[in-house]
Every structure is written in structure tokens, then in C-alpha cells.
Design a protein around this nucleic acid. Structure first.
Length: 645
RNA sequence: GCUGGUGUAGCUCAGCUGGUAGAGCAACGCACUCGUAAUGCGUAGGUCCGCGGUUCGACUCCGCGCACCAGCUCCA
């Protein structure tokens, strides 16, 4: 069951509705993961029935081909369906074609779906007979955990499966060309890695052949925007075996993005009363014993560096212990609070190899980190300010495809510090702040940090993978562990509350989202190359003029390049366009004659104003200084829109 | 980590059943001096992911590694 959504006005919910409904476009993993069978309304959806029935047909075809295979779960998902199997011998991808053929044959036959209900005991007996141990396990589980007494089965031809339904009446209702087997994957029985790994077959299924093809086409299109593809094409980053998996190298273009984001953060944090600090990349084991990382977080840490006669050192997986140590460096007064310490800090986490993915999941990352030390009375206001900062950035970058998750602890999971009342208190505090601010969110149990509840910004990338992009956390554990205290007005010693926050997340993840969100087309202020000056020919006077203007822009710290390659004029335009440079200045005789440029914007061939170079220069400065999002069409580019065509 | 797939020039890819490799783009050179998405000609570039094995002979077959891609982290 989905978490309870609190204080979520219907109108605002749309942008942050459940993952299943939120999928922006062509779905991948998220879409697949979002099982639809939890929502009773979906059961009336004819497409839901078809997909569900196709899962059965898939199982039937598989059993024809591989008798004795064991069945797991086989639900519909919002791009089709899947079914999990345990095979005696591994299934290879090329066998999917044969399975698909058999499925079509079954559809053609017009098999009817018939429901019957059995008592749990009878159900178990039947499942034993047909040798489906996973189903037996599940049937027993339904009885013991949910108190289910009757279990329904669906029979379609000679295939029978324990199933809640509903299904189509007859397989004839399903157009034979409206589905396709998509891929093969491993999946643990009941999603638990201690269980056997089954083989999952994914199928795509839509209303019609046309809808299926449309989906496949859109998915292809989305893959064009994959940050790994764009990152290579635009020379943003590279990952090399020589350096190590999950340890990206930032190329000059990517480093511009990082520098600009850091500049943005520095300015915003300065205005918001943060102070900057810098801390080393390694620290002694004892620090992480104090912080609680060693018991709770070791799996995600690189192994220790052991020196002779000395305590082991660890690469830091988080900046917090270092910042806490700064807080503790001298006695603190309540007058200093809230104390806000910020650092774009490099951290290293040993992610499981199978989790690594481009910039999205890495092992070395740079985080827009800060810790706010405050009194309990200040905690609400500070947390609200943190959420405000998140909102400001998301509005600014026009990131609308996200949902906010209030991540709570789970009393029965070991990874959470035991302190039930304080968890409840902290969670309620955060919940109230969010409610007060009228931001829509959904609660998820078991997603908290080990030291406190979080507000996570969940973003889905182009291939449908969901990750946390930003986070704000309330920590009620660390100040005790680190023995942090301040002297209150009455002279007593008090523990500060701590807020952890990373509204711009990590460069790695944030840039990957921006790349995909913008399709590689960055606003002028962020763009690695802000303007390319292109002469109509390499005649001496054009070259001279172009170099002169380039120097003026460059001296003004604008990232301008004069294209003096031997390429043709058309080729230069093309090169600049494929590199998604936001601004091109075209220079020819008439521009020289009046000290002007013809300004072509990325992808804009129609309207190209002719204006004095000084005006164009000034406009670039404005774009930069105001950080205008001129990669969006509705944003007016100064001096451009009004100019001559 | 686990399951399945993939690995050929900087990039995208071709290479039939074993006889040691090609194309386009990019790079470089020469010519061209051009008004809005690819000027022409030429040159160079490969440990066919790595290491072992089978074979007269391995990019091709087998084994073991490595990397990348997709998926798995609770309901028929």
C-alpha cells in the first residue's frame, strides 16, 4: 500500500502523484516497478485485464516450452506485464521469439478465462499437485498474514494459476499485435536477495499495435537524451577503467557546469547566512565510530586504510562528522545559533557494482552539503528555510518531474538508531513543517537516514530510473554522539538540533538530471561554451573582426570561441548546433560595416536579429548575471526578441 | 552482489559455416575563402576487452577474469 499522503491539495498532487501515474513518458524500470494491482480502480480498466491475462498466456507458453518451470509472480505493470520463473536450465534471450510465437497461437485459439475459488487447504493441495512451490508458499502466507480464507484460481485452457484476477473473457479480446516480449531479467523471489533468483520475462502491451509502436518509438527518443550519451557527445564527463568504476572524470565542459553550480550555491548560501568550511577527505576510524557510520554504514564505505601503529583511516562517506567536529572545536553560545556550515564536499561511497550507472550512481561524488545547528525552537523555521531553498532551485531550473518523499524510520529495521519516541517526535516536526508550507508529499516508511527522518526529492530520469536528487534531514542523534552542546541563555548546556541538507544534491546526480531535463541544451549562464563567433568566410577581414570581438567577450569572462577551423560556413553552423551552443554570432561584411553581429540562437533559424555588437555583448552579460533560463522558449532573451530579423 | 545480454578504429557499426579486418563520421594534410545543420581530394588510425586453452591456424570455438547495458531491493 502506498504511504499516506498528508496535506496534499488535489491540484498540487498532480505533479507528485504516485510513481505509476507520474511516469513522464516512455517507462523503464520505474514504470515496471510500479505494480498496478494495488489500486482497485484499475481492475476495471480493460487494458489492465488484457495485460494481466497476457501474463498468464506468457506463463502458459513458457510451460509448454519448459515443462516443470516454477512460477513466481506475474502481474500487469503500466507498460505491459511480466512473469517470474524458476527454470531448470537458464533461459536465453533468443528463446523469447519462440515463446512469443506460442503466445500468439494461444491468443488465436480464443482461450476462455474461468474463475474458481478454493479454500486455502484445497488451494495448497492443488498447488502441490501441479508442483508450484512458490505459489504454495504465497498461499500459506496470505492465510497467515492477511487471514485470507478463500483463494481464487483462473483456468485458461489447460493452464491454471492462482490469481486474484480479473481477466478478459477470452484471449480473442487481445489483438495479437498489441504486445511484444521485451526483455529478460533476474529478480529475487519476493524481492529478497536471500531468496532464489528467478528469471523475469517482461512484455510490453498496449491498446493496439499503433500504441505499442508509439511507445517503443518514444522510448527510443528518450534514450537519445540519456545523460551517458549526451555526456560523451558534449564532453561533459568520462569514466575510465584506469581510474575505477563509478569514479567519473569531469572534462573541461563538465567542470564549467560544476563551477557554475557551486558559484550559484555560494551566493545563495551566503545570502541565507551560511558560512563555508573545508574538510579533508579522510578521517580516523574513531570519528566514524562516534558518528555511528561504522556500525550502520560500513557496507557503503570503502575499506579502511591501515597504517603501522596507527588507527585506520577511512575515506569519508559523508561530511557530517567533520562538520560536527568543527562545531565542537570550541564552546558555543546560543547567540551563535543557528550556525550554518556549508561545504561542497567530496565523499566516497562503495556502491554495489550492479548499482553503478553513469553519473547517476557513482562511488565518488561532490555534495552540496551543509549542516545547520540550532535550538529546538529554531528547528522548524530553519527546516522551512531549507525547504524554501530547495523550492527556489527547483523552480529556477524548472524541474517539475519530481515527487517529495517524507522518509520515515521503520521500528523493525536494525539500521535505524533505536529511540522510538524521538523518531516519532522528529518525524512529526518535519511533517508539520511540510504541511504548514503546503508542499505536497508522500510518506514512506523505512527510507529514513539511520539518524533521522528525511525529505527527499525523488526524480525520475529519461530511462525511468528514480533516484533522490536532493534531501533535507533532521538529525536528533549526532549531537549526542558527538557530545555537541551550546550554552543557553540561562547558562545551562543544551544539545543543538541538526539539519542536514543538500538541495543541489551531488554534482554527479544533479548534472545527470539537468543534462536529460535540458536535452543537453543549457542556458547561457551554465553553458560550457556560451557563444561561438562564426565568420562567413576565412577572409582576412572577417577573421580579424571575429578575433577582436572574441577577445572583448573573453576579457569579460564570457566563454566565447571564434571558429577559425578550415570548415565551411555551413559546417561551422552545424558544429555549433550539434554541440548545443546557445548563442552564435554570425560575422560578415555587413556586420563589419556597422560594428554589428547577426545573432542566431540554438535551433532558431527563422528569427535572427542584426544588432550592434555592444548591445549583443550587454545582452550576454544580462543572461549570465540574471541566470536567465534562456534554454526555455518562453524566456525572453534581452536585446534579441526585439531586434531585426 | 545476483540474473541475462553486450564488448571490433576516438564515435556509430559491418565482418557467412575458424584462414590474423572494413564503412561512415571524427582526427590529420592539401586544395577551396564560401551568408545559416555536413566542400572536395588524400593520409593515418585496430593487442578485434584481457589472460589462458583447443587447433596447422582463433575476432570467430571453450574456460576464467574485467568493463558496460538491462533488471532485481515485498501482494496472485
Amino acid at each position: 500500500m502506498a504511504g499516506i499522503a498528508l496535506s496534499t491539495p488535489a491540484a498540487m498532487r498532480r505533479s507528485s502523484s504516485s510513481p505509476a501515474l507520474r511516469m513522464p513518458g516512455p517507462g523503464g524500470r520505474m514504470a515496471r516497478m510500479a505494480r498496478l494491482d494495488a489500486d482497485p480502480e484499475r481492475h476495471n480498466d480493460p487494458l489492465y485485464r488484457r495485460r494481466h491475462s497476457l501474463a498468464h498466456v506468457l506463463a502458459q507458453a513458457v510451460l509448454e516450452l519448459r515443462p516443470g518451470s516454477k512460477l513466481g509472480f506475474g502481474p500487469p505493470v503500466d507498460t505491459g506485464f511480466y512473469y517470474d520463473f524458476l527454470f531448470e536450465a537458464p533461459l536465453e534471450e533468443r528463446e523469447l521469439a519462440e515463446i512469443e510465437r506460442r503466445m500468439r497461437r494461444i491468443l488465436k485459439r480464443g482461450v476462455r478465462f474461468e474463475r474458481e475459488e478454493l479454500t486455502v487447504a484445497d488451494a495448497v493441495r492443488r498447488l502441490d499437485e501441479i508442483e508450484q512451490p512458490f505459489k504454495v508458499e504465497y498461499a500459506r502466507d496470505l492465510e497467515s498474514t492477511l487471514g485470507v480464507e478463500q483463494i481464487s484460481f483462473y483456468r485458461s485452457g489447460d493452464f491454471i494459476d492462482m490469481c486474484e484476477g480479473p481477466h478478459v473473457e477470452s484471449t480473442r479480446e487481445i489483438p495479437r499485435d498489441s504486445f511484444r516480449l521485451d526483455s529478460l531479467a533476474g529478480a529475487y523471489w519476493r524481492g529478497d536477495e536471500r531468496n532464489p533468483m528467478m528469471t523475469r520475462i517482461y512484455g510490453l502491451a498496449f491498446e493496439s499495435k499503433a500504441a505499442l509502436e508509439e511507445f517503443v518509438r518514444k522510448r527510443e527518443l528518450a534514450r537519445e537524451r540519456d545523460h551517458r550519451k549526451l555526456g560523451a557527445e558534449l564532453e561533459i564527463f568520462a569514466i575510465s577503467d584506469e581510474i575505477g568504476r563509478g569514479l567519473p572524470l569531469w572534462l573541461p565542459n563538465g567542470t564549467v557546469l560544476r563551477d557554475e553550480l557551486e558559484q550559484l550555491a555560494r551566493e545563495e548560501e551566503f545570502r541565507a547566512g551560511y558560512q563555508r568550511v573545508s574538510t579533508p577527505h579522510i578521517a580516523k576510524a574513531d570519528l566514524y565510530r562516534t558518528s555511528g557510520h561504522l556500525p550502520y554504514y560500513t557496507e557503503s564505505m570503502y575499506p579502511p586504510m591501515q597504517l603501522d601503529d596507527e588507527e585506520a583511516y577511512y575515506l569519508k562517506p559523508m561530511n557530517c562528522p567533520h562538520h560536527h567536529t568543527i562545531f565542537a572545536a570550541r564552546p558555543r553560545s546560543y547567540r551563535e545559533l543557528p550556525l550554518r556550515l556549508a561545504e561542497y564536499g567530496d565523499v566516497y561511497r562503495y556502491e554495489k557494482s550492479g548499482q553503478l550507472a553513469g553519473l547517476l550512481r557513482v562511488r565518488g561524488m561532490r555534495m552540496n552539503d551543509a549542516h545547520i545547528y540550532c535550538t529546538l525552537e529554531q528547528a522548524r523555521e530553519e527546516f522551512a528555510a531549507v525547504i524554501d531553498m530547495h523550492k527556489k532551485y527547483y523552480d529556477m531550473f524548472r524541474l517539475t518531474e519530481f515527487w517529495m518523499r517524507l522518509s520515515l524510520h521503520s521500528p523493525d529495521q536494525e539500521k535505524f538508531v533505536t529511540a522510538e519516541e524521538r523518531w516519532v517526535f522528529a518525524e512529526q516536526l518535519v511533517r508539520e513543517v511540510l504541511a504548514q508550507m503546503q508542499v505536497p508529499f508522500e510518506e514512506r516508511v523505512g527510507e529514513a537516514a539511520f539518524y533521522g527522518p528525511k525529505v527527499d526529492y525523488q526524480v525520475t530520469n529519461v530511462v525511468g530510473r528514480e533516484e533522490t536528487a536532493s534531501t533535507g534531514q533532521l538529525d536528533f542523534i549526532a549531537s549526542e554522539r558527538f557530545n555537541l552542546e551550546y550554552v543557553a541563555r540561562d547558562g545551562s548546556r543544551q544539545r543543538p538540533w541538526i539539519i542536514h541538507r543538500a538541495p543541489l544534491g551531488t554534482h554527479e546526480r544533479f548534472v545527470s538530471f539537468l543534462l536529460e531535463h535540458f536535452g543537453g541544451f543549457f542556458p547561457t549562464w551554465l553553458a560550457p561554451l556560451q557563444v561561438v563567433l562564426i565568420p562567413v568566410s576565412m577572409g582576412e577581414r572577417f577573421v580579424e573582426y571575429g578575433r577582436k570581438l572574441q577577445r572583448v567577450l573573453h576579457d569579460d569572462l564570457l566563454r566565447a570561441r571564434f571558429d577559425d577551423s578550415p570548415d565551411s560556413f555551413g559546417k561551422k553552423i552545424r558544429n555549433a548546433e550539434t554541440h548545443k551552443v546557445p548563442n552564435l554570432f554570425i560575422l560578415g561584411q555587413k556586420e563589419i560595416d556597422s560594428g554589428a553581429v547577426t545573432w542566431r540562437r540554438h535551433g532558431q533559424r527563422e528569427h535572427q536579429p542584426f544588432l550592434p555588437f555592444t548591445a549583443a555583448h550587454q545582452a550576454l552579460r544580462t543572461l549570465r548575471e540574471r541566470r536567465l533560463m534562456d534554454n526555455f522558449e518562453d524566456v525572453d532573451v534581452p536585446a534579441w526578441s526585439g531586434g531585426d530579423a
